[in-house]
């Protein structure tokens, strides 16, 4: 069982959260020309790192806020959690 510290609510069990994937993926700016490659990288291509991974979670059965979590994908150790708009 993962315990995730929601920056709004404190330490909660993983059961209260849903997963949102890689937090470093940025949507290309749509008011500029977007290459096919940029679009692919946004929609499909993932590094899926072994080790430290920055990811999005939503505290769906709590405050319902999206948060960012830095977690080790091999050991599940959680290093840091921040609010969604903050840098991690």
């Amino acid at each position: 069982m993962l315990n995730i510290k929601c920056p709004h609510c404190g330490m909660r069990s993983q059961n209260e959260f849903s997963y949102g994937g890689d937090a470093t993926i940025k949507r290309p700016e749509l008011n500029k020309e977007v290459s096919d490659q940029d679009w692919d990288n946004f929609v499909y291509n993932r590094k899926s790192l072994r080790g430290k991974h920055k990811e999005l979670w939503q505290h769906i059965s709590g405050c319902r806020q999206w948060i960012k979590v830095e977690r080790d994908t091999a050991t599940h150790e959680i290093f840091k959690t921040v609010k969604a708009h903050e840098d991690i």
Binding site: M1, S13, S18, E55
Partner: peptide
């Protein structure tokens, strides 16, 4: 399990 993982072992939930 629902989140990226290389753990080769699972979680109870």
């Amino acid at each position: 399990d629902g989140y990226n993982s290389y753990a080769q072992r699972g979680n109870l939930p």
